[in-house]
């Protein structure tokens, strides 16, 4: 916690406790001055506590799946990832009108309005995790790709093989059958990406968007999905420099909110 140091600007932390990865963003004088991304483990309180102890900060805000856990054990504010992602998006890309955030276990589409609220409306996938980051991970492993190369490899697919199921378990057996039938794995990968785009597209298409469409979350690092979504939506999908930390930036801004400079 903060000691009395009058020279350094106040530091605010945003903690985004996702189901797969945890993100910490440092904000000082209205600018991001540092960030960290690491895998979430079974003991995320200690993981985060150790990192907070090393920092001299004024306030932290937690968001994501583990936000209440942090709030119960550490002195921090709590904000939903919907609001945090909206605030973060406005910060990294003021021109954005809509943000698509595909995380480890859910996908959200948030409409940024002109009103006073952080967002105007939002849509989320239903309770099943089909078509999220976790689905991509399982499928990449099945096809023998690393998660970083999966999207690039899918871009090389010669044809888009249609997959009938988005359920992780059913899709897995379908992919195994396709491999057994000797189908090209890049084309299967392209088909899998296509089915995720089909799942996300209707959520985004429900909104009238004024401004750019931004993609946030770790899945935004996948070039194939960004390309497919751009084509489905008929407009470019913009990816910021570090898409994984957009929501954590929003949490850091929420930690800063209402605090006088």
């Amino acid at each position: 916690m903060r000691t009395d140091d009058v020279t350094a600007p106040d530091l605010f932390l945003g903690l985004d406790l996702g189901s797969r990865t945890t993100k910490i963003v440092e904000l000082a004088a209205g600018a991001v001055v540092g960030f960290e991304v690491f895998d979430t483990t079974h003991d995320s309180i200690e993981q985060v506590r150790a990192r907070l102890d090393r920092r001299d900060y004024v306030r932290a805000a937690a968001t994501g799946y583990g936000r209440f856990l942090m709030n119960a054990h550490l002195d921090c504010r709590v904000v939903t990832e919907i609001t945090a992602c909206a605030i973060g998006t406005r910060f990294v890309r003021p021109q954005a009108g809509l943000v698509i955030d595909i995380g480890g276990q859910d996908s959200k589409v948030i409409l940024l309005g002109n009103g006073s609220g952080a967002f105007a409306d939002f849509e989320m996938n239903d309770r099943c995790a089909a078509g999220t980051g976790r689905f991509l991970e399982v499928m990449a492993r099945l096809l023998g790709f690393g998660i970083e190369e999966f999207g690039r490899a899918a871009c090389e697919g010669g044809e888009m093989i249609t997959l009938s199921s988005m359920c992780t378990v059913f899709a897995e057996s379908e992919v195994i059958s396709l491999l057994a039938a000797g189908r090209d794995r890049a084309s299967i990968a392209l088909g899998l990406h296509g089915s995720i785009a089909d799942r996300v597209y209707p959520l985004a298409a429900r909104f009238d968007v004024n401004g750019e469409v931004l993609m946030a979350g770790g899945v935004a690092l996948n070039p194939c999905l960004v390309d497919l979504l751009s084509k489905r939506l008929g407009r470019p999908v913009v990816v910021p420099e570090h898409p994984q930390i957009v929501t954590a930036i929003g949490a850091a801004l929420a930690a800063n909110e209402g605090v006088k400079p």
Partner: peptide, 25 residues
């Protein structure tokens, strides 16, 4: 919100409800 009687989706429901309330200010 679409849900059933089970407790398994409490986290997801909580997120939707909390975000909705945050949106209401």
């Amino acid at each position: 919100v679409v849900t059933d009687y089970a407790e398994s989706d409490t986290g997801q429901l909580r997120l939707r409800v909390d975000a909705f309330l945050e949106g209401l200010g």
